[in-house]
Every structure is written in C-alpha cells, then in structure tokens.
C-alpha cells in the first residue's frame, strides 16, 4: 500500500467524473482506490462505500473467457472446416434426394454409395489444407500440431460424415458394410498421401481416381461397381492399415509447412 494518498481535490474531481483529468492521474487515483479502504471512505461515507465495494470485488476478480462449449468445439473441429462440413451434410442430403427421386431407377446403384468415400476427403482437406485454413502457418508452429491434432480434427470430420451417411443409408436402404470401409480408407488415404504430396493435391488426386475408376462406370453403365462388392472387404482393410502406417511414420510432416501446399 502506498503512503501517497490522492489529494482532496483530485478525489473530488474523480468523484464528479471530470473528463479533463489527465489519464495517468486518473489511473493512479483509480488503482489507489482499489487498494485503499480509508480513501474509499473519504469518497463516500463508509457504509455505502463498503457495500458497493463488496458487490464489485467478485466481478473484478473474475476474468472473462469464452464459453466452455465453444472451447471444446474448437478443440476438435478445425475452425476453417465449418462451412465445408455444412457442405458435406448438404451433399449427403442431395444424394439421398437423388436416390429417392429414382434417377437411377431400375438399377441397384445408389448415389449415396458413390459419394460416400468422397465426403470425408472434403472434410479432411478443409481441416488441413494450407489453401483453406488462413491460420495454417500459425497452427503448424504450435506444439499441438502433428498427430494429436490430426486425429482430433479427422475424428471431428468423421463425426459429421458417418452419422450423416448412416441416416442416408437407413433412408435409401444402402448397407453399412458397403460404404463404411471405403469411407474410412479414403479418409486415411488422404492424410497418408497428403504427407507425401500435400493435403490439397492428395484430396484432388483421390477424388479424380474415385471418379474415373469407381463412380464413373456405374453412372454410365448402370451397375454396382466391382470395387464396392463386399468380397473386396479385405482389400479395403489392407488399404486402411497401410494408410495408417504411412500417417504414423510420416507424422512429422504435419508439423511443417511443406506438406500442406
């Protein structure tokens, strides 16, 4: 506590709320009053000052912070990905609508099935690409960058994609087993390929590969693509495992700028 108490005159001016008090003097008086009960008593007769102070003090000690729910959300979802995840939901709904309208009528090809592996690719690209995340360089330089954050953000993408597709599957009658593995394999595949050539390029390459090899022929020839047969489950499992191995081996790539071109 300081021995220099404000003069009666400056206290009076402070009390009146004069707006010509120099800023440094104002701050000095204010911070002095925070710590000096006798001076607060000089300002107003004691019972009033003490009562006001008792109500004010808890508010002063509390540091404002953002709501807990918002903080938890940001811990999982990449802030840049929100609009893209909304798009993923829209595309799922559109695929369901196309199926219901029966554009592929008479055949067993489902649009839901054809877009399923591409939805997480979009989400992953939005979460990690340098082009889509404005704070990318900042985030890459933090200790959380790397596998822990990759898994959080990827889990968040899947938390949107998988329930959406499950719902779509229920509505259109497409079996769980048909789309889940390709969907996961493409998710991990984007990350794995991304550690080598950059996430954006990886996403584009996988999308193009899917379009030509799998989605294209059935749309043209109206039959369920060979690669979506349940007999190929071991192949998808192998691809998924290989992708995971590459991601773990190349984990340092997520902490550098080069990967995320």
């Amino acid at each position: 506590m300081t021995a220099h108490h404000p003069t009666d005159q400056s206290l009076r001016r402070y009390e009146r709320g004069d707006d010509d008090i120099p800023a440094d003097e104002l701050w000095a008086v204010e911070s002095h009053l925070e710590n000096c009960a006798p001076c607060r008593a000089r300002l107003v007769p004691d019972p009033v000052a003490t009562a006001v102070w008792a109500e004010l003090q808890p508010a002063l000690d509390r540091t404002p912070q953002m709501p807990r729910a918002r903080r938890r959300w940001n811990g999982w979802f990449s802030p840049a990905a929100a609009p893209w995840l909304a798009m993923v939901v829209l595309v799922t709904a559109a695929a369901v609508a196309l199926d219901r309208l029966g554009l592929m009528a008479g055949e067993r090809v489902s649009v839901v099935l054809l877009v399923a592996p591409l939805l997480p690719v979009l989400g992953v690209a939005a979460s990690w690409s340098r082009a889509l995340d404005p704070a990318h360089e900042l985030v890459s330089a933090t200790p959380r960058a790397g596998l822990p954050l990759v898994f959080r953000r990827t889990a968040a993408v899947l938390a949107v994609v998988v329930p959406g597709l499950s719902l779509a599957g229920l509505v259109t009658g497409v079996g769980f087993t048909l789309w889940l593995l390709p969907c996961l394999a493409f998710t991990v595949g984007t990350l794995a390929l991304g550690t080598l050539v950059g996430i954006t390029r990886a996403a584009l390459a996988l999308t193009a590969a899917w379009a030509t090899a799998i989605a294209g022929p059935p749309l043209l020839f109206q039959r369920t693509p060979l690669l979506l047969d349940t007999a190929l489950t071991p192949l998808w499992l192998a691809l998924l495992a290989a992708g995971l191995v590459v991601v773990v081996l190349r984990r340092m790539a997520f902490t550098r700028l080069e990967t995320n071109l």
Partner: peptide, 9 residues
C-alpha cells in the same frame, strides 16, 4: 488468442 494458447498446450 485463447485458441492459440490452447494450441500451445
């Protein structure tokens, strides 16, 4: 700034 502080563990 809170988000950056969280990223910095």
């Amino acid at each position: 700034v809170e988000y950056m502080a969280w990223l910095k563990e």
